[in-house]
Nucleic acid binder design. Sequence first.
DNA 1: CTGAAAGCGCTTACAG
DNA 2: CTGAAAGCGCTTACAG
Lengths: 354, 354
Amino acid sequence: MTVSAVLNAARSGTRVSEATRQRIIEAARRLKYRPNAIAQGLSKRRMNTIGVVCITQFPTDINMIVHEVLNGILDGANTWNQYTIVCTIADWVQEQKMLGMCDGRLDGLILLGPSLSESFAEQLYSLTEYVSIHSDGPVKFGVNMDADNYGGAQMATKHLISLGHRRIAHFEGDARYHGTADRTCGYRTALEEAGIEFDPSLVFPGSFTSPSGFEQAQLLMDKSKTGSMPTAIFCASDAIAIGALQKLIESGFRVPEDISITGFDDSLISMMASRQITTVRQPLHKMGRFAVEQLLEQIDLDQPDHSATVIGRDRGRTTELLLKSGDVVTVTPQNDLLFRSELVLRESTAPPKS
Amino acid sequence: MTVSAVLNAARSGTRVSEATRQRIIEAARRLKYRPNAIAQGLSKRRMNTIGVVCITQFPTDINMIVHEVLNGILDGANTWNQYTIVCTIADWVQEQKMLGMCDGRLDGLILLGPSLSESFAEQLYSLTEYVSIHSDGPVKFGVNMDADNYGGAQMATKHLISLGHRRIAHFEGDARYHGTADRTCGYRTALEEAGIEFDPSLVFPGSFTSPSGFEQAQLLMDKSKTGSMPTAIFCASDAIAIGALQKLIESGFRVPEDISITGFDDSLISMMASRQITTVRQPLHKMGRFAVEQLLEQIDLDQPDHSATVIGRDRGRTTELLLKSGDVVTVTPQNDLLFRSELVLRESTAPPKS
DNA sequence: CTGAAAGCGCTTACAG
DNA sequence: CTGAAAGCGCTTACAG
C-alpha cells in the first residue's frame, strides 16, 4: 500500500514520511521496478487506451482521408497520454470484431466512417463509450463528427459561379454517406441563390474514388455529345476530381482553360495531381485530434474541464461551440459536430472561355 | 476451473461431461458472459498485442511509405489474431516512450525506420522482443527487414542504360539510412558493369522528400550550366523523383523526352505525379505483414512452424529463404532480411534524344 | 504515518 | 470428471 502511494505520486491522499518515501524510491530504482499496466488496468478498470476502427485501406487506394484522420487521432492520443489500438475491418458488417475488442483492453472507441444499425449502436454502447467521424448516417448513443458538407459545397459552387460559370456539373460520392446529400444540397443552394436553375441532368451519382470520377467524366462527355459541355465540375471528393481530371485531359480538354474542376477534402492527393486541385478543406487532422478529446470526456464524465463553450444558437436548432483548440463547430439537431470547411484555391479553376 | 476449461474450447486438456459443459455454456449465454482480456492477460502474461512505433507523420508529408507498411502490419495482425497498438514518436531519441510501452500491454514491438543505439537496443531487448523495418543501421538483438536496395538501384540504373543513357545522375536520400549507401552502390555497379565511368559529381546528396528532389534538380541544373545536362536521373525515392520532376518541368524540360527520371519505392504517389514514375518496387505491404509473422515467431519460440525454409546459400555469406507467403528473401551477414525489389516501368523514362 | 486484507477476473496445477 | 486454492501484480478502503 505504501509503495503504491509513493510510486503513484499523483494520488497524494495518504501522507508518507520522507524517510519511508526515500527508502521505497531507492528500492524501486535498485530493483528496476516497472509497474505492470495490466495489473493496474485490472484493478482500476482503465487502460488509458482508445480503440480506432476503420475499413481496411487497400494498398491501391489513393484515398488518404482515413490516414489523415488517424494521424490526428495519434496526435491527440499523444497529448492526452492514451494508447491507441488500431483495428481494421473488411466491412462494417463485422460487428463481432468490434464487440470483441471491448473486453477490457480499451476505454472507448473511435469509429472512422462507420455504417451502424441502430440496434448495433445500442449494443456497442452497452459495452463502451464511442464517437465517430464521417458516419454514414446519424449516430445514436454517441457523437459523430464531420465537416460542414453543406457549407463547403456551397462555397465551392459559389466560387465557380463567381468566376463566371453558369453550367456547372456535380459528381457525387457514395449515396449511403449522408454527407453526399448535404454536398449536393449545398451545390443546389448556391446555384439557386445565383439565379441559376438547378438541372438534375448535370448531377452524376458515383463513389468517392478516382475510378468513379473517371467514369463520371466519361458519362458527362457522352451526354454532352448532342448539346454542350458544362464549363465547370464540382466533384464531391479530391479522388473523384483527380479521376475526372485525368479523363478530361486524356480526351483533349485543358484544365482549367476549357473546364474548371473543384474537389472536396483537401486531401494530400489534391496537391499532387497534374493540376493542383482547387478544393474544400476538411480539417481532418483536427477532427481526429478532437475525437480523442471528446471521447475522453465521455469516458471520464466527472472531468470538469469542458472542451467547448457555447457561443451561439440558431433559432434553437443548431448550436455553435468554441473548442479549446480555438476551432468553431456547429452542433446539429441530430447531435452531429460539424467542423468548418474552407475553400482552398489552386490551379484547377479559372473563368470560362468567354 | 471447469468454466474456464469449457469456455476456452482450445485447451482440451481436461475432460468435462457433456451435461456440465452444456450447463456452463447455457449459463454463459444467459448471463451474456464476456471474458475480460485484461484478467486473462494478467494471468497468462500474453495480451496478443503487438506494438508499432513510428515517427509522427506530418500532415503535409506526401511520404506514404510508413502508412503502406502499417497497412501490411494491420493486415498481418488480422490474420494472426493480434491487436495492434500504434504509437508515434517525434524522434527516435524518445526512448522512454518505447520503454514505457513495454509494461505488459504488448508482447512485442515492430519499429518502423528506427535509429537505435546499441545500448538502447539491448535495453529494449531486455523488456520485449522486437523486429524492425527500414532501420537506419544494423539492428542488434532483433531482425531488420528491408528491400534489396543494392539490387533495386542496380536494376533501375541498368534500365536507364539499356534505353541508351550514358550520363546518369543520382539523387540520394538521407545519409543516415544505410539503404542510401546501398542504392548508390547499386547505381555505381550498374554503371561500371556497362563500362561507364562513375562520376562523383553526378551524385547529389539529399533526403527522401520531394523538396529535396526539387533542390537537387536545381543544383543539377546550376552545375550543368557550363557543361551539358545528364539525360537521366536515378532518384533514391519516389518523393525525390516527384520533386525533381516538378522542378525540371517548371524549368522547361520535358520528361521523359528531354530527361528520364526513375524513382524508388513504388509508393502510391509514384502513380499520381504528372508523369507516372518508373520506379523500383519495394513490397511494403508484404514487409509489414511478414514483420508480424516474424515477431510472433520470436515471441512464441516453441511454435514449430517456421515461416521460412532455406533454399540457397551464397558462399556462406548470405542465405536465401523461401517464406510461406511464397516470397524469397535474402539474409545478409548482418542478419538483415532483404525482400526482392522489382522494376516497374511507367511513363517517366524513355531513350535519350538521338 | 503504515501495513494487513480484500478484490479486480481470469488460469493453472493439484487434490479429490 | 469436478472444484478448492493459489497466483498473476496491482489498488483501495480500512484498521491500527
